[in-house]
């Protein structure tokens, strides 16, 4: 089913040069079971990220609910190929990856689970290079407000 959709994509695209990468990409299964961020990044990208100020990671400083943490990653970097999200302290840190064609603006929102307070990292692959930025997100017991 998935494959058929992808093939349909090829037909529609014709000769656009940027496309084969997206179409050939497969779910990085090993990254999703890796128990540390470094292995997951190596598995998916084969390179270590460099820090970029051009990535905006919008996420609450303190989560209202660790099971539902809204996150938006956007970037001014050119030629964005993918956006990925990593929660360092989750049992399996690699949370999600979005492979995008040039037709999609490099900005995506999703909601993620966090088991505990952690550094959250946004990865952007653009023009063949991997970039990242990160923020600390606190997951706390509630109450005592006032």
């Amino acid at each position: 089913m998935h494959r058929r959709l992808l093939l349909k994509g090829i037909v529609a695209l014709g000769a656009m040069a940027a496309w084969p990468r997206l179409l050939l990409a497969a779910r990085p299964d090993a990254a999703f079971i890796a128990d540390n961020a470094e292995d997951a990044i190596k598995d998916v990208f084969g390179q270590a990220p460099v820090h970029s100020d051009q990535i905006k990671l919008k996420i609450p400083d303190i989560a209202e609910n660790g099971a539902v943490v809204p996150v938006t990653v956007s970037t001014d970097l050119a030629d964005v190929e993918s956006i990925s999200i990593i929660v360092a302290n989750n049992p399996t840190p690699f949370v999600a990856s979005f492979d995008m064609s040039p037709r999609v603006l490099p900005s995506v929102s999703v909601r993620i689970k966090m088991g505990e307070s952690s550094q959250v990292m946004a990865l952007v692959k653009a023009g063949g290079t991997l970039y990242s930025t990160s923020r600390d997100v606190k997951v706390t017991i509630g109450g005592c407000g006032g």
Partner: peptide, 11 residues
Amino acid sequence: AFPYTPIANPQ
């Protein structure tokens, strides 16, 4: 408004 209302008080 108080930014952490649903954490400090019941959601």
